[in-house]
Design a binder for these strands. Structure first.
Lengths: 344, 344
DNA sequence: GGTCGCGATGTGTACGTTCACATCAGCGCC
DNA sequence: GGCGCTGATGTGAACGTACACATCGCGACC
């Protein structure tokens, strides 16, 4: 656009200046310009300055496509993700972005629209055609995980997920342990009838938290009951709460995430029940708002940013040829606030 | 390549198959393969099939760098953003991603680490060197906005921001109107002493909401008082609330976003005050959790996704040469819940 | 029966960069 | 004074693709 009338001769798609244009202006060969761009040591200071001036004068910007083509190094890390609206993945991505940038890498993020195999494959194809050098998969659904293992990924990759099924390529927060800690906290407060509102069944993390919950209950010889399968949203927690509270055959709830815990507490209020006096609630994630819920929520904190940073460090190490890196899970941590109390 | 003897099990960097490899396998010329890739109409069905088979057999993926180099079309929309952790920008990005993908475009997202001019410039340089075809700026800070206007952006672009200062390139939710609606709601409930907890001063949206607030108060001939400058976080709302509630010289609060409203309500509880009986509170954004706060929050809903979709539509239109597109602001909407009541 | 048009395919070239190698001056050295 | 070395610079390839153009066979047409 910008067909401003004051501009006489329409330049119409002026070709961006290239390395030879710079060379011409600086009075050197294009190779010398290339050397300047790549910080070659053997350049006379005077020449260096001339080239730099020419670059500024023309507003020259190196063409990444050409660079990537010839070096087959895109300096790009691909991120395959399924659900970026959630707090956890989003925080991780942020950390990944920062860490990658510091190492001179950029991110190519692709959301897959569904967890169908075809959709995953097309997302991956897309990233591969960008000549990504490494891949990070933040796809908490079981299916995605399976598909990735099935598909031939030609580059170093890690999956950010919970179970540690595939330890050689995964980086994870020990969700099972987190769930156990949360459940144990409730048990230690004297609760024996504990409900679990879980995330969607096909999410690895939901599954892991459920496992941790069930195992801890089992270890304490307490009655286990079927968890409610939710969808992570506060609304689900609310409606599930309204339903569950009609029969009050439990005194504590372990929610799969903080949002569902919030919704559940809402349902408690509407049902005339006090948290934590009548019902104790533990969440998961420790989103920044959780400290200000009514009451402030006891929850399990995960260091999403740490995971993101580690993922990048791991991949960059692998690209440099370093082999052994730590794959230890990040340990979650219980944050006790006011939504849990000793059973009355 | 790299036949270094010291390295034992070289991963054997096999060159990825290219268009000529496919051509050889299919027994056609590379140009025919290119035609298949670009959906050229004049290909014999039989030839088409042979080429497709060859592609599958070799696992061929077109090299985007080469493509971008020769066409100077990267099929990429750049997104320059400052704060993706916030709900609004994140929701918009999600919508942008979806809309872009549907149009066959991808996103290149760059976070700027600070609002320094140099940082903005380097972010923009970075995007430009990716040969982006269009640019979306989600940078709510005034400074970013200024810098973008200053810098020569060589491609169609829009900024997603609040004031409409630069209507030819901006796409916005009418934040001033949103703030007026929120404030008017409080006034209509009989409140005359209204506080405003604002966002950071350098955010355009914070400024716009503050303006709307002040204007509405002015129109109603009510006393205006200096807004508190916050940082969008629930914690700030909480601590500001504790401080403000020591003098109870107001009966209503308009918070710059839902998080700060949440924190403020927390402070009310701790101060023994009831929302909405003692203090009415209105938030801004309508994050999904707001409906489950205690009490459910009256707030102003913004359609972030709509903004994202529109941004993409606008840019794609411009790329196609269409000139006139709607730049009308998206109208925000008051959602009345239970955090506001008639002044007692 | 030659010309034309058209559908299907092949050949050259350019895109902007980096890499390997070539060149060239200047210097110290025996 | 010829030799080799080194630092600074230049030249000729590639990289993988798309575009413009050329080619070729074939049926239609006057």
């Amino acid at each position: 656009m910008t067909t401003e009338t004051d501009r006489p001769a329409e330049p119409e798609r002026v070709r961006a200046p290239n390395i030879r244009d710079v060379a011409r202006v600086a009075g050197v060969s294009y190779q010398t310009v290339s050397r300047v761009l790549n910080d070659s040591p053997s350049i006379r200071p005077e020449t260096l300055q001339r080239v730099r001036d020419a670059i500024d004068e023309l507003g020259y910007r190196p063409n990444q496509a050409a660079r990537a083509l010839v070096t087959s190094r895109s300096r790009t890390i691909g991120v395959l993700t399924a659900q970026t609206v959630h707090y956890g993945p989003q925080t991780s991505i942020q950390a990944i972005e920062t860490a990658a940038r510091e190492a001179g890498y950029r991110l190519s993020i692709t959301n897959i629209s569904s967890t169908e195999y075809a959709s995953i494959k097309s997302g991956l194809d897309y990233l591969m055609s960008q000549s990504i050098e490494a891949l990070i998969v933040i796809a908490p659904q079981v299916r995605v995980f399976e598909a990735i293992n099935d598909l031939q990924v030609g580059v170093p990759f890690v999956t950010l997920e919970a179970t540690g099924l595939n330890t050689s390529h995964s980086l994870w927060v020990d969700q099972v342990m987190g769930a156990r800690i949360a459940t144990r906290h409730l048990i230690e407060l004297g609760h024996t009838e504990i409900m679990h509102i879980s995330g969607p069944q096909d999410w690895i993390e939901a599954e892991a938290r459920m496992q941790g919950f069930l195992r801890e209950l089992g270890d304490a010889d307490l009655r286990t009951r079927a968890p409610i399968l939710g969808d992570w949203t506060a609304s689900f927690g609310y409606y599930a709460g309204l339903e569950l509270l009609r029969y009050r055959d439990f005194t504590a709830v372990f929610a799969g995430n903080d949002q569902m815990a919030l919704g559940f507490m809402h349902a408690c209020r509407e049902s005339g029940l006090s948290v934590p006096d009548d019902v104790s609630i533990v969440g998961f994630d420790d989103i920044p708002e959780a400290a200000h819920f009514a009451p402030p929520l006891t929850t399990v904190r995960q260091n999403f940013a740490e995971i993101g940073r580690r993922a990048v460090a791991l991949l960059l190490g692998e690209l440099r040829g370093e082999t052994e890196m730590s794959h230890d899970p990040v340990q979650p941590e219980l944050v006790v606030r006011q939504s849990t109390a000793r059973r009355s």
